[in-house]
Design a protein around this nucleic acid. Structure first.
Lengths: 213, 213
DNA sequence: TGTACATCAGTGAACGCGCGTTCACTGATGTAC
DNA sequence: TGTACATCAGTGAACGCGCGTTCACTGATGTAC
């Protein structure tokens, strides 16, 4: 633990950070081809290590895929947070709260469009809402996508723009809307739409959510 | 073409309807395990025919999968139509039009929940909106899911419940919402929800769409 | 009505592929004395 | 500070698997005369 961290770094991963390297390779594979492209042997190949070396760090392929998926979810959170942070505060807290919710949706959809492979990978591993705040799915802000959405909705409620009795479970409504559009656009029958059409639909979709929530 | 149709029917598919049989087998595979489960060899195995026999009827595996996917889309249409047809007309045409739109959403989500494998398969083959009215994707009514949705929205417009200037592209908004919930529920992080919670969320989601469109 | 023949749906065998995973191993590393 | 040793990260070879696809074929079918 004294010198090898800096010393060997690359030549061989002996006592190095093969785990991180495999994760990074897996992420690139997912970026290019979605969850099915996260192939254990290919990840080891890219890292320059024998196939079975992966088993020192991941129980099996699914464990690697799950780690990649969680990392991708963290990147979704980063994309959302970036959009939210870019919202310029106005003098009206209600306007601001609404802007931030819209920013969540925009960040989510931006990620889906820019990184379709990672987006699909993020949602490819069956999951449960009870894990929605798991630190392993968090972005650099320490928050998961779900948590960022929750904060935006809490903000809406706290300025009186969302009645308290409607607040519970509203995450699922907003999430469904943007998730559906994302899926239809990257994978499904809406992939033929031009960027302008998608942009326009995004605005209208966020209008619908804001109005209909 | 005189007697073999009735005669050999099953013993061997020689001059029989192997194509239909393979399609049916593929559909069952998709039902059980989604698009990845549509394995050409397994389909021929189930039908009792050698693997390469499939190539008399499908150019390759993807062609078979596409056919299965289209058939599944037809079943989605059937599920939606059944729900729409079950709407009891009231004396108020506006109420009826809204009810029918909600029925479209319910039928879509019912199918997603009851047949997750087929639902995923229906949307697994990259497609284009320009094919959204293709007869190969139609249900027994002769309409595709997209066409049924379009009709419901047209109905809403014709009774004055949806302003004409908002009408174009509204399909995508409603579709995104229900599609997203369907995906999150069957594949994603919402799979842990109880049936009651999903039912409740469905109602609220349809409220949101009706209000926000 | 009977016979020769062309068609073509399905057969049987084989291919190359790449995968996930297991095995017994080796040799650099860090540690105990 | 030097040496013996245990650890364990990575190696090399191999496995069984099932897939999609291609090949040359065969024999029941329907058709032309």
């Amino acid at each position: 633990m004294t010198q090898h961290r800096e010393a060997l770094r690359r030549e061989t991963y002996r006592h190095g950070d093969l785990r991180q390297a495999l994760l990074a390779a897996g992420l690139e594979l997912a970026r290019g081809g979605g969850p099915d492209a996260v192939v254990l042997r290919e990840a080891t190949r890219r890292v320059g290590v024998s196939p079975n070396a992966a088993y020192r760090h991941f129980a099996d392929r699914l464990t690697l895929l799950t780690s990649v998926s969680n990392t991708a979810l963290g990147l979704v959170a980063d994309s959302i947070s970036a959009e939210v942070d870019a919202v310029k505060p106005s003098s009206d807290p209600v306007v601001d709260a609404k802007s931030r919710l819209r920013a969540v949706g925009r960040g989510y959809l931006r990620f889906a469009r820019e990184e379709p492979g990672l987006f699909r990978t993020a949602f490819s591993v069956p999951d449960d809402l009870s894990n929605s705040a798991s630190p392993s799915k968090a972005g650099s802000s320490g928050l998961t996508p779900f948590q960022v959405l929750t904060m935006a909705l809490d903000g809406l409620e706290s300025v009186g723009a969302l009645p308290a009795d409607r607040r519970p479970g509203t995450e699922l409504l907003a999430w469904s809307a943007v998730h559906g559009l994302g899926m239809l656009v990257i994978d499904g029958p809406l992939r033929g739409l031009t960027d302008e059409m998608i942009d326009g639909t995004t605005v209208r979709l966020l209008d619908m959510v804001e109005r209909g929530i």
